[in-house]
Structures are given as structure tokens and as C-alpha cells.
Design a protein around this nucleic acid. Structure first.
Lengths: 139, 139
DNA sequence: TTGTATGCAAAAGGTTTGCAATGAT
DNA sequence: ATCATTGCAAACCTTTTGCATACAA
């Protein structure tokens, strides 16, 4: 991580180290609040705001990832049977993808470790044609 | 939907109809706020709170689905390359699933409609062994 | 020394809840 | 008549932001 900071000319602060250590130490997927609790145990006085800013910075560096791509607000759809989603990272739009070939993926039991799958859905992330055009013309 | 309400002895209210109509009329995946705007155009006076309650009710009936399984708070993980997630619907825990066989899915170009996929991840929903035990013993 | 990060506190969404009144069956 | 639902308003939780200060390089 220090490397990635240097690449970008960004300072390596104790807070960044603390957040990354806290996150590396766990296998579950903690919330910002949980990261704050863990990190501020080692570095008392850290603010929640700092944790959010550090997580954003680390995400931008590609060190950390936000799971549950929870935009600010939840999205709804009429339940139309199993299908997947195309999510445009440019504009945030979500389109449905009905693709029978993707409805029968098998999850090796050996990997499931006692986990019983009831359903699954795939989230494809990329750029819609509109956002691609925009990006091209901007260059 | 009227049918599902009756099954459960729940009233079919104008608000429920308005929300479902609003949601059925769109293919994008509107936020609760957008649903509220659309529904209250037809049924002035509807509150945002009602929209949330109606969406919850419809989801419980299996008529509507919440995309962006945005729990209240975002979750983070250290970026460890491509992998998928096992999400327990019982306790909300998320586990990583590294499964090489699932890393080379192909999305038929014909279906993508100009959408260029950069990456994807699969979310398997089900019950972890702990929650399964609990559920069994409760019966 | 310079530019970025931090703490603090306040604001800004999004969502939930208590309560009295309304309404569906 | 009965029980769930609605509206209203306030509360709640998570995340973001402005500003002055502190700090890494």
C-alpha cells in the first residue's frame, strides 16, 4: 500500500495504515463502523469521517473493495423470475439480462462448506453504450 | 397481487396498487424516491413512508424485489482478485468464494446491446450451516 | 515548505418508527 | 367491527462536507 501511495504522491498516514491493518485482519466483510472500531482501538481518536475518507482513498488505489455495491439508495424491480444485471459504472443504470445459459451454474459442493445455495445472480459491471461514447469524445 | 394479498388476509389498498403500477410501468430500476414520485402522481398525498412500507410488503409477498441488496451499511474487503460471494440470508454474513471455474463466463455479445463488460461477480444467496441448524431446531 | 489528511461538528441523504386516524374486508 | 394501513412528523443510521489545524514528504 505504501507503494501505491508513493506512486500517486500521496502520504502514508498512520490512519491509512490502521484502517488497512484492521481490514486485513478480518475475513468477514466489515462495515465502515466496524473498521472504525477496530482501527481506533490501535489508534485512539480516529474519527468515523476519517475511516470513510481512508476507505475511499484505498478503494481508489485498488487496495480495498466495496462489496455490496450499495449506491446511496436501494433499487427495486418487479419480480420477473431469475435474471442477471448489467450495471453501468458510468451512469449507475441497471439493465436486466435474461440469459438462459447462465441459469444453471453449478457450485461445487466441495467449495460451499455447508452453505446451501437457494439462488444466485450475476452482476456484470461495465459501460453502457452511452457512457462509452461520452468517454471517447472526452478524450 | 390482489391474489397474494388475499392469500395472506391483507387488504388491497389504493396505495399498494399505485406503487405496483408505478413499478410495473418502468424497466429501469427506480429508487423508492422515484417510485414515490410516480405513484403519487396518480395518487396525490402518498407519503414516502408509505412507499417504503408498501415496497416491503410487496417484497414479502414476492411480488417485488430489491436489487442492490444494499443492507443499511456498505461492506468492505481487501481486494484479493476476482472472486464471488456467498451471502447468508439468515445472518447476513458474507463469505468469499474462489472458484476458477466461474471466472470465465462468457456473455453473448448479442445480449449485451452495446454494453461492454469489464468484470462481473456472482452473489450466491442461501443459508450457512449455522443458520440451517438453527432453522431445523426451531421447527 | 507545500499539499494532502485529519478532527470536529454540522449537514445531508435514505430509511424507519410511534401514534392517532383512516380504511379494507 | 376488527385489524392492518396510512399520514404526519420525528428519529435514526450511514455517509458526506466545510473549515481550521496538523502532518507527511
Amino acid at each position: 500500500m505504501a507503494a501505491r501511495c508513493r506512486e500517486r504522491g500521496l502520504p502514508v498516514t498512520p490512519q491509512r495504515r490502521a484502517v488497512l491493518r484492521a481490514l486485513s485482519a478480518r475475513r468477514d466483510h466489515p462495515t465502515a463502523e466496524q473498521v472504525h472500531a477496530a482501527a481506533s482501538a490501535r489508534l485512539p481518536g480516529m474519527t468515523r469521517a476519517t475511516v470513510y475518507r481512508v476507505l475511499d482513498a484505498l478503494e481508489a488505489m485498488g487496495v480495498v473493495r466495496r462489496v455490496d455495491h450499495a449506491g446511496a439508495a436501494a433499487r427495486y424491480e418487479v419480480d420477473s423470475g431469475p435474471h442477471h444485471h448489467l450495471v453501468c459504472v458510468g451512469c449507475g443504470r441497471i439493465a436486466d439480462l435474461h440469459e438462459p445459459a447462465l441459469e444453471s451454474l453449478s457450485l461445487p459442493a466441495s467449495r460451499a462448506r455447508g452453505f446451501v445455495v437457494k439462488e444466485y445472480s450475476i452482476q456484470f459491471r461495465g459501460l453502457c453504450s452511452g457512457c462509452r461514447k461520452q468517454q471517447r469524445s472526452r478524450k
